[in-house]
Design a protein around this nucleic acid. Structure first.
Lengths: 332, 332
DNA sequence: CTTAATCATGTAAGCGGTTACAAAATCAAG
DNA sequence: CTTGATTTTGTAACCGCTTACATGATTAAG
């Protein structure tokens, strides 16, 4: 760290007061053109740049936000949350926010860490514990949810347009003549799960297709579990579904395996659709049709909402929805 | 943020001086048991926790580090770098470091951001520009490299034991009777590329196997490119290789596609091995044999090295290697 | 019971900025 | 050339914590 030049050094060298130097850097318009030049020159000579810590201290404002991923097990490794993180990073950078990233292993710890680190706003990704949320609110930390909603709480949420995504899927399959469409509903996240589930049921109904209870299978969101569930589903004699809508791409990979084991060809015997359009889609064979979710955009929106909250703006949109788009590939 | 309680409030309520309160929180042993209790009690009543910013200001030490991913295009979305990030996050948390994550789109910006944000140490992931590194060094910011090495620079590097991983691959294939082993060398990262390449050549030699120039194909590290390259490689009549060592798992997925197109069965007609043991391995059909790299551990080691540097320790290990392990699955 | 050494605590001066307030400079109009 | 309004600059008091140094309390040794 050595001893970097301070505002005093710049003040001395440029011959103006420290107040003026300070103003030159934080509100350049409030200082006369000629002095501004002098200050900039001196700063350049000294290689000075303002100390963000001292500034935060004096301003009583840190411009610091955090992104906390609330999901057991996977964290930033989850491609979806990483995509959101990416968007948050970019936007935070532009808005000159400092970004701290962490996971919510233990919400007590998380809160106290946030407290001592003087975080002003927090973006909670995934299924945030209500206790965590209210703890933040009690401490006047601005909160934005992403990929989640909490009924009643007056919190801005950023989500994907799950309903539209699911509709597109069903529309696409129906247009291809599929009537028996089943759903493989891996348990990913309470909010997402529920959205996609209801959208599926509604979508089927509005297309005049039947939803038998047997056509929806719940399971864990890993390959083994989804493979087993898919196999059961495809085996259930009666009338084997001709298309399978999977709650996410990993579940679809499980379905692929089950299909292969049962000797079903994709897409001839069975159409498969995933969700998220993650990087595995083009790697699978055949390439997987999936619903694209612009998670970077979601991250950016989070920062926008948070910034609005921090600026005390009124009438902040409480629900921001990012469009989804079906990417048709060779699995349908 | 409201106005949180300060050390003065605690001082007043507990009846001791601010200095004692401060000591109670930063060096509890230097204060008598009974007063310590009083202070803790008062702090609990007020719900006080020390302000990290003020502390950093007074101590002239921020305990703040950054992880900068130096890779065009992909960033935290790259599973490998995300894994490292995960490890860094955990370790930084334990060491009570604040962690800032960013990408090095433009190294000038990156440096100046780091400067004003008072970062004490930085972990550079991937191929860091030499200019970036020396700029940090000039500013007395501790630097640790991960997944990269720079000749001559006296910087701690954390890498995976690529050589051993490649050896295990070749040993495994040789033991299964493969003689014609080819390499699909997608360009991932200068350091990694070069390590795996040389390890391949050396490993083949030491197993007494021949490396023809035609048996190594270079290409970009995406599916399309690797698929095309693999197809060419497998078509080159002469003597078709019976095993394919791919520089990473994505490249292996490309090889899968090429094999399928050519009607080659995996593993009967062609064995395929990847590298990184990423989450796609168990999703592919057949499941992909790959070299596991413990990237979380790499992240943790980075923080350990960085902490050592910051503590001014001497004799810091300049090269830390994380073991790799071949995970045999059904593709070989 | 001193005296010196040790331990525990208090006083107050920073750390590097910001900003309320006051003073000085500049400008426009009479 | 005044006068008042406006712009620009300076002075100095914080922001919340740490820590060098001084002081008071305690303990061990003589």
């Amino acid at each position: 760290m050595a001893s970097s030049p301070t505002i005093y050094d710049v003040s001395r060298l440029s011959g103006v007061s420290t107040a003026t130097v300070s103003r030159t850097f934080s509100e350049p318009d409030r200082v006369k053109e000629s002095t501004r030049r002098k200050v900039y020159d001196a700063a350049a000579v000294l290689n000075y740049s303002p100390n963000a810590i001292a500034r935060a201290m004096a301003r009583q404002r840190t411009d610091r936000i955090a992104y906390i991923i609330c999901k057991k097990g996977a964290t930033i490794l989850d491609e979806f949350y990483a995509g959101i993180c990416e968007g948050i990073m970019r936007a935070a950078n532009r808005a000159e926010h400092q970004l701290l990233v962490s996971t919510a292993e233990d919400w007590r710890l998380t809160v106290s860490a946030a407290e001592s680190k003087q975080i002003e706003g927090v973006i909670l990704g995934g299924t945030a514990e209500p206790a965590l949320i209210s703890e933040f609110q009690a401490r006047k930390v601005a909160v934005v949810l992403v990929n989640n909603r909490v009924a009643g709480a007056e919190l801005p949420s950023v989500v994907a347009d799950e309903a539209s995504g699911v509709e597109q899927v069903i529309g696409h399959l129906a247009a291809r003549g599929h009537k028996k469409i089943a759903m493989l509903a891996g348990r990913v996240n309470a909010y997402v799960m529920s959205e996609r589930y209801h959208a599926f049921v509604d979508g089927m109904r509005s297309c005049g297709l039947e939803v038998s209870p047997a056509s929806i299978r719940m399971c864990e969101a890993n390959v083994e579990s989804t493979e087993a569930a898919a196999e059961e589903l495809l085996r259930s004699a009666e009338e084997r579904p001709t298309a399978l809508f999977c709650i996410n791409d990993v579940a679809a990979a499980g379905a692929y395996k089950a299909a292969r084991r049962l000797g079903l060809r994709i897409p001839q015997d069975l159409a498969v659709v995933g969700f998220d359009d993650s990087s595995i889609c083009p790697l699978l064979e055949p390439e997987l049709t999936s619903v694209h979710v612009d998670c970077r955009r979601m991250g950016e929106l989070c920062v926008e909402r948070l910034t609005a909250l921090l600026h005390g703006e009124k009438d902040i949109e409480l629900l921001s929805t990012v469009p989804t788009e079906l990417i048709v590939r060779r699995s349908t």
